[in-house]
Design a protein around this nucleic acid. Structure first.
Lengths: 142, 142
DNA sequence: ATGGGTGCAAAGGATTTGCAACATT
DNA sequence: AATGTTGCAAATCCTTTGCACCCAT
């Protein structure tokens, strides 16, 4: 069953609500864990056996271009995606590699494009990196 | 001729000042244009004909781990490096692909690690994306 | 029938790794 | 000799692309 939110987001950007697109969007919305393309693919193949990686790649790229999802490149070699498009900060744990959302007061929020030195800025991302709570605890126990 | 700055940075992290490392660091310091690994390699091969890409990859990764350079992943599938380790914001032009430094008042500056929700944060990066001044001008002329 | 979507396989890159050779102490 | 570095080539991914097929209108 697909949520209204998934359908609405597709309609908003004028894309046909195919099974693949709906499932991918739905997965993003219900799994706020910053999945990689591979994560999404692996999660959905069981229910859509003919799904191809290319479709997942293309669809997620589309989503981020149309701003119904965010592409995150905080982890040097693996792009991941976030269906949460409200302002928040991404925190990358260098120990376990997980990406967390932090609702820090410094989260950039850009409602409309702004000009800086003549350059038009229409996207902002703040990345934090360090060691997460869990990994700190593990280290303390050694 | 290598600057003192290059030598000092290598000493600071306890690495031997080999010809390769000094040249790579020197290149970063004198070319604040956020070169990719390939850029660095191409620029230095003429003077060090036996240089290998693997060395450039490994050396730059070392530099960023030891914090004498910054690894930047603002461009989705090409990592680049910055020898400037003072706080500033990186701006990526989606049109021409260049990465600019912006000395915006919002540049994060983290002198010592801070705790957020129990997580230890020791690095911050703020990325802006949009269309740069030059590309804006080109578009206006069409 | 037409246009948008999808899947497959191949191509294209970027990055890492293992190992042998080399340099420096 | 011992340790730390480098270069080469191969191996691994990650991601994109071209093209044919399919589906919905």
């Amino acid at each position: 069953m697909k949520s209204n939110e998934a359908i609405e987001r597709l309609e908003r950007i004028g894309l046909r609500p195919s099974v693949q697109r709906l499932s991918i969007m739905e997965y993003l919305l219900t799994h706020p864990i910053h999945p990689t393309v591979e994560d999404v693919y692996q999660a959905l193949v069981p229910e859509i056996p003919t799904l191809s990686r290319a479709t997942v790649y293309n669809t997620l790229r589309l989503f981020s271009e149309k701003k119904v999802a965010q592409m995150i490149t905080i982890d040097d070699h693996r792009v991941c995606y976030d269906g949460n498009i409200t302002p928040h900060v991404h925190f990358f744990c260098k120990e376990c590699g997980k990406v967390y959302d932090l609702f820090d007061e410094n989260a950039p929020s850009l409602k409309r494009p702004k000009l800086i030195d003549g350059n038009m800025v229409d996207e902002e991302q703040l990345y934090y990196k360090g060691i997460c709570k869990d990994c700190m605890a593990k280290k303390a126990n050694n």
